[in-house]
Computed example of a mutant assay.
Amino acid sequence: MAKVVTFGEIMMRLATPGYLRLVQANQFEVTYAGAEANVAVSLANFGIDVSFVTKLPSNELGQAVLRTLRQYGVDLSHICFGEGRLGLYFLETGFSQRPSKVIYDRANSVFALSKPQDFNWDEILKDATWLHFTGITPALGDNLVESCRNALNKAKEKNITVSCDLNYRAKLWSEEKARGVMSELVQYVDVLFANEEDTEKVFGIHADDSNIVEGKLSLAGYEQVCRRLRERFGFKKVAISLRESIVANLNGWSAVLLDDDDFYHSRQYTVHIVDRVGAGDSFAAGVIYGTIMGMKPQETLDFAVAASCLKHTIIGDFNQVTLEEVKKVAKGEGSGRVVR
């Protein structure tokens, strides 16, 4: 039986109601979110045994996080606790030509200040078959670079599949620091996830004939990106989500996958967006699920894109969909007609 472990920070998300701007808001909608926690919840919803590893404050906010994750059936037994604060992020949802905005308030959080010795990777990975992390985790500090390195070394010692989503965040570290750290860490990675911007920012690999600002994306260019990444780092799979931003709440959404030496691309969905945050995490979870379940590469990619397409329609970072709902969309049942 497959067991996935994800490692990273979970935060309190404070979003303005509806489409209010942050400067207008006098109240916020509270949920909890974080890239690796988002992946864990998606996989749990699909019936995968999954454990989320982090450090939480020893107070009511830490307990609120546990209660939130527990309802999805995520294993929380390897979460540790300490004195400190829970990280926050503020979200203003964009509309039309006005983009969404995120403001982080996560500096010196209990997770950001965690120590490598807080995590016993031999015990955490005891029964694991897959380890997932993102570039956000090492971006939080050199201590977490070391924690990631320890986890990756132990995963390779145990012959565990490792996946990583680059998730470059300019507000957390520079391109130069990201390139140096991630070039080392991805040496342990079997499956790499990225979007159309990450590969250029982190590794300097750009897709020819593409311009993400203008919404111009070239499949041939991204096949070249996937192959160059594989040549440089030896990944078994490279999956890249492709977003064509028409306006903030209307996007084209698709993805490509390099599996061994074969290249695949999905259909493109036109998505009217309710909440796009977490879409990349739901895509990664879909690829992980398809791979674990032995789906063929094209089926895996179609499943992952359908799952992430649905995520755009759901408020909050977690992709609160069922396996059956994703499969229906992947088969083409995406008209949005009322189900009676």
Rank of each mutant, 00 (worst) to 15 (best):
L91E: 08
E83Q: 15
I103E: 11
T93C: 00
Q97S: 09
A151K: 13
A107L: 13
E92C: 01
V74Q: 03
C148Y: 12
A107S: 14
A128D: 08
F81E: 11
W121M: 06
L125S: 01
Q71R: 15
E83D: 15
I79M: 03
L66A: 07
S147I: 10
G94S: 02
A112N: 12
Y104M: 10
T134E: 08
F119P: 01
F133Y: 14
G141I: 11
T134L: 05
S114V: 06
G141S: 05
T137E: 08
L69N: 01
G94Q: 04
Q71K: 15
T93H: 05
C148D: 12
D105G: 05
Q117Y: 10
R70S: 15
R106F: 09
E83T: 12
H132L: 07
S77M: 05
D122G: 15
G135H: 06
S114Q: 02
F119Q: 02
L140G: 01
H78R: 09
P138S: 03
T129I: 09
G135C: 12
V102T: 11
S147L: 09
Y72R: 02
N120V: 07
L88N: 03
G141C: 08
I124K: 05
S114A: 15
L76A: 01
F133P: 00
K115F: 11
T129F: 11
K126G: 01
F119L: 10
I136E: 08
L88K: 00
F95A: 06
I79E: 03
L113I: 11
D75P: 02
A151L: 13
H78A: 12
R149H: 10
E146M: 09
Q97N: 08
